[in-house]
Each structure stands twice: as structure tokens, then as C-alpha cells.
């Protein structure tokens, strides 16, 4: 078997740091698009953050959205082209801080879009500030003494929060820290796109991701950090899956 670049990825070299999870997740999204054969009618929405240049990397039509507004932009695209597959690719600052309203309301409307949510517990692009998902005690540029939850508040668990909303068809948290987890992440991302094609409603896949540069860790230690620190606060798993619920009935 030959290991090839998915067609849905362009031939442009990623600008991401060594050990960053974006490359893996981009590939998984592209593989899902390839396998479903939907590249020709897919529109992706890049957000603001390290993945801002995603519009250069995906071979489908792409829009670059204002910070936090990716799901509002995606809503506009989907309402204009209901037959198209529409996805957003957003980080934690974009989705869970400045874009919280857009996220919650796209989800509760059951907007038939797929959201790929990169949770690496930090703002990467701007140089490592506290994110809405930064863990208690975690040191960042703007929490130099560690995140003090009494002052800075608590991290947001996005999948748990959104799973209470009736418009959500699939909310699943995955990780790309190991081969086994990458395979599970691929399955979840593909399922989300399949649900959208089937018109089931809003789908979100949260991916626990590494940021060695801003965490100040080696590539290997970053993967350990995900397992030892992130997974206890953000347990992997399916938080809502209307397909499985339908199956039970």
C-alpha cells in the first residue's frame, strides 16, 4: 500500500510547528472528504488562529472567517447551498471564547454543519496566552503563576455543554496522541461528515491536540501531557449521538 497525500489536501507545505496536531487533523478531515467523495461540493471555513491558513491546505472551496464567527459564516453558506457539505475548523480561543455565542446557537439551531474543534488548551498563533480551555494551574503567557480558577474562572468542557442541546446530532471528544486514538479520531470525523450528508444536524468533533511550542515541551512530552493532564479534565468519549440513540429505539 502506498502512503499518499489525500486529494482533498493541496500540495502546499504546512506552516505548523513540529509536533503540532494540526497536520494530523487536517489529514483526517481530508481523508474523510476523499472517502465520502464530497470534495467537489464541500466548502470549508477557516478560523482565526494557527489554522488560519487552512484555506491554502484544503482543496475544496474555502472561506476565511472573522475571529469566532466561523459557524455564523458556515450557517450563511449552508443556508445558501443546502446541498453542500460545510465544515468549520476552529481552535479553542476561536470557538469557546470569542465565538461561544455563534457555537451555541449554531448547535441549538441544529445547523447541518460539521465543526472540527482543536482543543490544545492555549492560544497558539498569538504566542501562548490563556485559552478558555487552559487547565487549572496551567502556566501560560497570561497566567504566569498558573491558571487561578478563582480569578480566571474554570475551563469550558465544550462537548459536555453542547450535548444538552437538542440540535446536536453528534458531539464526540477524541485525541490524536497515539495511533489507536488517531484511528478513533478518523472514525469520528468521518461519522460527523456522514451525519451531515444524511442531514442529521449539527456535528462537532473535539480533538485534544498538542502545542509543544507554547507548552514549552518536547514533541514526545507533549503527547504525555495530553494523556496525563488533559484527558482527566476532558474525558474522551461520545457525549451525544442521535444515530446511536435511534439504534437503541
Amino acid at each position: 500500500m502506498k502512503f499518499q497525500r489525500p486529494h482533498a489536501l493541496t500540495d502546499i507545505q504546512f506552516h505548523y510547528c513540529p509536533g503540532c496536531s494540526h497536520g494530523i487533523v487536517h489529514r483526517l478531515v481530508a481523508e474523510a472528504i476523499d472517502e465520502l467523495g464530497v470534495e467537489g461540493n464541500t466548502t470549508g471555513v477557516a478560523s482565526v488562529g494557527c489554522s488560519v491558513f487552512a484555506y491554502n491546505y484544503f482543496n475544496c472551496d474555502m472561506v476565511q472567517s472573522p475571529h469566532g464567527r466561523a459557524q455564523a459564516v458556515a450557517t450563511g453558506i449552508k443556508r445558501a447551498r443546502p446541498g453542500n457539505v460545510v465544515f468549520t475548523y476552529q481552535g479553542d480561543g476561536d470557538l469557546a471564547a470569542i465565538g461561544t455565542a455563534e457555537t451555541v446557537h449554531a448547535a441549538t439551531r441544529g445547523e447541518n454543519i460539521t465543526v472540527i474543534f482543536i482543543n490544545n488548551a492555549i492560544y497558539g498563533m498569538t504566542g501562548g496566552q490563556m485559552a478558555p480551555t487552559t487547565l487549572p494551574g496551567q502556566v501560560t503567557q497570561t497566567t504566569p503563576y498558573g491558571r487561578n480558577v478563582k480569578e480566571a474562572g474554570h475551563p469550558i468542557r465544550v462537548c459536555e455543554m453542547l450535548s444538552t442541546l437538542s440540535g446536536v446530532a453528534l458531539a464526540e471528544r477524541v485525541s490524536v496522541d497515539s495511533v489507536k486514538n488517531v484511528k478513533a479520531a478518523k472514525k469520528a470525523i468521518k461519522k460527523a461528515f456522514e451525519y451531515q450528508v444524511e442531514g442529521k444536524g449539527y456535528t462537532i468533533i473535539e480533538v485534544l491536540s498538542s502545542c509543544p511550542t507554547n507548552w514549552g515541551l518536547s514533541m514526545q512530552d507533549s503527547l504525555v501531557w495530553i494523556r496525563e493532564n488533559m484527558m482527566s479534565y476532558y474525558p474522551l468519549g461520545v457525549y451525544r449521538d442521535i444515530g446511536a440513540e435511534e439504534g437503541k429505539e
Partner: peptide
């Protein structure tokens, strides 16, 4: 959100 939905629809 409304104006960004307009942006998305217009882009489409």
C-alpha cells in the same frame, strides 16, 4: 452573527 451569515451566504 447576522452580518457574518450574510458574509457566508454572499461568499457562497
Amino acid at each position: 452573527a447576522a452580518v457574518n451569515m450574510v458574509l457566508g451566504a454572499s461568499a457562497a
